[in-house]
C-alpha cells in the first residue's frame, strides 16, 4: 500500500479525506481491480493534479472522490461527510452543495442557453438569485455578451468557459476537473487554465485536476501520480514553492 499523508494539514480544514480506497469491477468470472488502497487528504484551497497514463485509474478515483461511484473498500469523507453509506439522493445533495465539475467534453445541455446551463446547479440548490448569480459568473469568464447563446453556437473554448462558470456558480468548496483542456487547442487551453486557477484563487476552492498534461499538473501545488491503480508518488510541485 502506498499512503501519503499531507503534512500541512494540522490547522486547516479538510475537504477530502480518502482512506484505503479500492475499486474492483467484476466481469463474469473475472475481477479487475483498478484502484488499490489509495489514501490522501486535501484541505481548503489546495490544488492537486492526479497524473497518470490511460487506464491508471485517474477517472475512477475522481468518480469515487465525488461520490459518483461506490468503492469496493475504503472510505471517502467529502466536506466532513462519509459518502459511503449515503444513498444516491444524499450524495447528489452533497455534490450540489459542495462540489463543482469541469469535464473534458464540456457536457453542456444542448437545449439550454449558456445562461440557463450555468443556472442549473443554482436552481437545483433552490437559489432565488440563480439568474443573477449565473449572469455574474458568466461575465466573470468573459461571456457576458453570449448569455442567450446555445452550446452549438459557441466555440469549444467558449463552451468550456460556460462549463467553468457552471462549476463555480454555487461557490463549491471543491472542484473536480477531468482533463479540462483536453479538447482545446493550445491557445484556448492556456486561457482556460488561467481562468481556472484565477477562479480557484479568488474563491479559495480546492481544486483536483485529472490530466495527462504535465504542464497543467505543474501549475497545481501537488501532483499525485497513479500507475495501475496505485499512487506511486505524491509530491509538491515547483508552483507550490513559488506561490505566496
Amino acid at each position: 500500500m502506498v499512503s501519503v499523508s499531507d503534512e500541512r494539514t494540522g490547522k486547516e480544514q479538510r475537504v477530502l479525506e480518502v482512506t484505503d480506497l479500492s475499486k474492483t469491477y467484476q466481469s463474469g468470472q473475472r475481477s479487475l481491480t483498478v484502484l488499490h488502497d489509495v489514501s490522501f487528504t486535501l484541505n481548503d484551497g489546495d490544488t492537486c493534479a492526479v497524473l497518470g497514463p490511460s487506464g491508471s485509474g485517474k477517472t475512477t478515483l475522481l468518480g469515487l472522490c465525488a461520490g459518483l461511484d461506490t468503492p469496493s473498500s475504503g472510505r471517502v469523507v467529502l466536506c466532513g461527510t462519509d459518502v459511503g453509506p449515503l444513498n444516491e439522493d444524499a450524495r447528489s445533495r452533497i455534490r450540489n452543495e459542495h462540489v463543482g465539475f469541469v469535464f473534458q467534453s464540456f457536457r453542456l445541455i444542448p437545449t439550454l442557453t449558456a445562461l440557463e446551463n450555468v443556472m442549473v446547479p443554482a436552481e437545483l440548490r433552490g437559489r432565488a438569485d440563480a439568474r443573477d448569480a449565473a449572469q455574474r459568473v458568466l461575465e466573470q469568464v468573459g461571456l457576458g455578451d453570449r448569455l442567450s447563446h446555445y452550446p452549438v453556437q459557441l466555440s469549444g473554448g467558449e463552451q468550456q468557459r460556460v462549463g467553468l462558470a457552471r462549476a463555480f456558480v454555487n461557490a463549491p468548496r471543491i472542484l473536480f476537473a477531468d482533463e479540462p483542456t483536453g479538447n482545446l487547442d493550445d491557445e484556448t487551453s492556456q486561457a482556460i487554465q488561467e481562468l481556472l486557477f484565477a477562479l480557484n484563487r479568488e474563491r479559495g476552492t480546492t481544486l483536483v485536476v485529472v490530466t495527462h498534461d504535465e504542464a497543467l499538473a505543474e501549475k497545481t501545488d501537488r501532483i499525485v501520480r497513479l500507475r495501475r491503480g496505485t499512487i506511486v508518488s505524491d509530491s509538491p510541485t515547483h508552483a507550490s514553492e513559488i506561490r505566496p
Binding site: 459518483l68 455534490r95 446547479p121
Partner: peptide, 12 residues
C-alpha cells in the same frame, strides 16, 4: 447522469 453529477435528485 450529468444532472445527477451536478446534484439533481431523483425527484428532480
Amino acid at each position: 447522469v450529468l444532472l445527477k453529477t451536478l446534484g439533481a435528485s431523483r425527484a428532480v
